[in-house]
Design a protein around this nucleic acid. Structure first.
Length: 482
RNA sequence: GCGAAAGUAGCUCAUUUGGUAGAGCACGACCUUGCCAAGGUCGGGGUGGCCGGUUCGAGCCCGGUCUUUCGCUCCA
C-alpha cells in the first residue's frame, strides 16, 4: 500500500521540538487527540489557509467567502440529518468488554441465516432504529440469541446512543436553556446564508460560497496525530448550480481541486481518487482525494455532489423559500429557467490533514557524511509559498557593523514577508536550524558586504550558495513565493 | 472500545539482581573564532507521567490511572 516507511513518530517529535505542534494541556498530562499549533505551526497553517482562500475566492469572480458562527439554531441539525444520522446506537458485551454498533452486530448475525429470514430481521431492525427504540433493539438482540464473537456470551449492556455532535447550553441558567450543538461541519453555515449572500452579492448561478472554520465531532476513537481530532478546521466551498448540470460541475471541481494539490509540488503518484460506492443520504456522487500519508492512503479532501438535499431540507424546516430565480433562457423551451432550488457541489478539505500532508511530504532526513566526517540534517522541504519563515538574515559576526547592515535588510524585507534574524552560533549551525524549520533562503552578511553590498544567499534544498547584491534579495524571495 | 509497546533533563537515551539520578546534544553567560552540526570556561534545568501499595529503603517489584505510538475497530 504505502511506499513510505512510517516516519510519523519522527514527524511528531520534530513538530514538538521545533515549535510547530504541541500536545494540548501537556503540563496536565495532555488531552487525548487535541493539539496546539506553536509559533511556526501557526505560520504554516495561516499560509495554507491563505493559499486556499486565494485560489478559491480571489481567483474565481463567482466565489465569495463568509465566516458563520459555530453556534447555530438547533433545528438546523435536525434539517441536515445530523441529529438522526450522525449518531450510532452501540451495545457493549460485559464479558469481553467489546463494543459493537447495533446495526453491524445484527447485520453480522443475519449473514449466517437464509436470505428471507434475514431480510425480515433487517426490516424489523430498521423500524426500531427509525423509532430510536433502544429497548426494542436490546430485546431483539437477546431474543435472537446473538452472541459476542469474542466471549461467546449474551451478557449485553443496554443499547446506548453515541451522538457524534458535542452539545452545550445556550444561556447561563441550565434549566431555562436550550441544548445547542457545536457544528460538526461548516457547510450548514453556508446553506442557511445562501439567500443572504446571493441577494446582497447579486450572485448569479453558478456561484460559490467559501468558508474556513472550526468544526467539532465527538469521535469514539480519535487518533493519528492531527489526522483525526475532535476539534478540527475545515476549508469548504459550496458551489450552487442549475439542476441537471451537477455532474459536469462535479467533474470540474474534482479536476480543479486535484490541480490545487499538485500545485503544492506533491507528485501525482502520492494522490488518488477514491469514489464512494455507498453514498450518504444527501449525495448523488462523492469522492475523496486521498494522499499517501505515513500510515497509508487516507482522505484529505472530499468532493460531494449534495444535490438539493440541504436547501430543500432547510426550506422544509424553516418554512422559508430557498429558491433562486434564473433569468437565463433555456434553449429547449425558449423561456427563462425560472424558480428552482439549486443543486450543490461541495469541496471540503481538512486543514489539519493538509498540514500533516505537507509536513509528511516535506520531512526529509539527509545523510551528508563524507569520508572525513559523519554528518546529517533534517530538512523540511516546504514549498516556498507556505514555508513559515521565508528568509533568515544572518550576520557572519556581530561586530564590525555587520549586524547593523543585517538589521537594515531585515527591516526592508519584513513588511513583505516573514523574516528571521539570528546572530548566535556558527553559520553552519544556523543553517541547520533553518533547515529544520523549512526556511528556503538564508542570506549571510560578511565583510565583503561592506565593500560592495553583496551577500551570500544559501538555498535550503541544494545547500548551494551564491553572491548576489543585497538590494536584489527582497525581489528574489518575493518572486519565488508565487 | 479491544490488544501490544512505551513514558527518566528541551531532544536522544543510559542507570544489568531495589540502596538518596547520569551522558551526549540542546539552552544561558563570557572568551577565542568565522560560510554548512567549532573549541574552552562557568552555569541553569529532573519530587523518574500521575496516584497508591509492598519494603528500613522504589526510576526499578505490584495495582490503578493518564498520555502517546502501532495493530484491530470506528469514521453521517
Amino acid at each position: 500500500m504505502s511506499t513510505n516507511q512510517n516516519n510519523l513518530p519522527a514527524i511528531i517529535s520534530h513538530c514538538k521540538e521545533y515549535g510547530f505542534i504541541f500536545p494540548s494541556s501537556e503540563i496536565y498530562d495532555g488531552l487525548s487527540a487535541v493539539y496546539d499549533y506553536g509559533q511556526w505551526g501557526v505560520e504554516l497553517k495561516k499560509n495554507i489557509k491563505d493559499l486556499w482562500w486565494k485560489s478559491m475566492v480571489y481567483m474565481h469572480e463567482n466565489i465569495v467567502g463568509i465566516d458563520s458562527a459555530i453556534f447555530m439554531h438547533p433545528t438546523i441539525w435536525k434539517a441536515s440529518g445530523h441529529v438522526d444520522n450522525f449518531s450510532d446506537p452501540m451495545i457493549d458485551n460485559l464479558d469481553s468488554k467489546k463494543r459493537y454498533r447495533v446495526d453491524h452486530l445484527i447485520e453480522g448475525f443475519v449473514e449466517n441465516l437464509d436470505a428471507e429470514k434475514g431480510a425480515q430481521i433487517i426490516a424489523d431492525m430498521e423500524l426500531l432504529l427509525a423509532k430510536d427504540d433502544f429497548d426494542g433493539l436490546k430485546n431483539m438482540i437477546v431474543n435472537l440469541g446473538i452472541k459476542c464473537s469474542v466471549s461467546n456470551t449474551c451478557n449485553w449492556t443496554n443499547v446506548r446512543q453515541f451522538n457524534l455532535m458535542f452539545s452545550t447550553q445556550l444561556g447561563s441558567v441550565a434549566e431555562e436553556s436550550d441544548t445547542i450543538y457545536l457544528r460538526p461541519e461548516t457547510a450548514q453555515g453556508i446553506f442557511v446564508n445562501f439567500l443572504n449572500v446571493q441577494k446582497t452579492g447579486r450572485m448569479k448561478i453558478p456561484f460559490g460560497i467559501a468558508q474556513i472554520g472550526k468544526a467539532f465531532r465527538n469521535e469514539i476513537v480519535a487518533r493519528g496525530f492531527i489526522f483525526r481530532m475532535r476539534e478540527f478546521e475545515q476549508m469548504e466551498m459550496q458551489f450552487f448550480v442549475r439542476p441537471g448540470t451537477q455532474k459536469e460541475w462535479y467533474e470540474h471541481w474534482k479536476e480543479t481541486r486535484m490541480k490545487w494539490h499538485l500545485a503544492l509540488g506533491i507528485p501525482q503518484e502520492k494522490y488518488r481518487f477514491h469514489d464512494h460506492v455507498k453514498l450518504a443520504h444527501y449525495a448523488d456522487a462523492a469522492c475523496d482525494i486521498e494522499y499517501d500519508f505515513p500510515m497509508g492512503f487516507k482522505e484529505v479532501e472530499g468532493i460531494h455532489s449534495r444535490t438539493d438535499f440541504d436547501l430543500t431540507q432547510h426550506q422544509l424546516y424553516s418554512k422559508k423559500k430557498m429558491q433562486y430565480f434564473d433569468n437565463d433562457i433555456d434553449e429547449a423551451t425558449g423561456k427563462a429557467f425560472g424558480n428552482y432550488i439549486p443543486y450543490v457541489i461541495e469541496t471540503s478539505i481538512g486543514l489539519d490533514r493538509t498540514i500533516l500532508m505537507v509536513l509528511s511530504e516535506a520531512y526529509t532526513e539527509e545523510d551528508l557524511s563524507t569520508a572525513e566526517k559523519q554528518d546529517s540534517r533534517v530538512v523540511l522541504k516546504f514549498p516556498i509559498k507556505i514555508a513559515p519563515i521565508k528568509l533568515a538574515i544572518l550576520p557572519l559576526m556581530k561586530k564590525d557593523g555587520l549586524a547593523e547592515i543585517a538589521k537594515e535588510l531585515m527591516q526592508s524585507c519584513s513588511e513583505h514577508f516573514f523574516c528571521f534574524y539570528e546572530e548566535k552560533d556558527s553559520i553552519g549551525k544556523r543553517y541547520r536550524r533553518m533547515d529544520a524549520l523549512g526556511t528556503p533562503f538564508c542570506v549571510t552578511i560578511d565583510h565583503q558586504t561592506k565593500e560592495d553590498g553583496t551577500v551570500t544567499i544559501r538555498y535550503r534544498n541544494s545547500m548551494e550558495q551564491e553572491r548576489i547584491h543585497m538590494n536584489d534579495v527582497k525581489e528574489l524571495v518575493m518572486k519565488s513565493m508565487h
